[in-house]
């Protein structure tokens, strides 16, 4: 599971190793990636909202 999370975060950042990609595609199931991706997006939204509130106060 940790593997999928690492990959999704790498995707948000935009950089990924070939080795990692090969392992993700061989082992991981697409459903996992989409789910973790949405959760990561929600977390990102939360973080940025908190950051904005902090900056605005």
């Amino acid at each position: 599971m940790w593997q999928v999370i690492k990959s999704v975060l790498a995707a948000f950042f935009g950089v990924q190793k070939e080795r990692q990609r090969r392992r993700d595609f061989e082992q991981g199931r697409p459903g996992h990636f989409i789910l973790v991706g949405l959760v990561a997006a929600a977390v990102l939204v939360l973080l940025v909202v908190l950051l904005a509130r902090l900056a605005a106060s």
Binding site: F13, G14, V15, Q16, K17, E18
Partner: peptide
């Protein structure tokens, strides 16, 4: 066709 450290730097 692969050099992750360079990619990390330019990101």
């Amino acid at each position: 066709h692969e050099h992750t450290t360079v990619e990390v730097i330019w990101t």
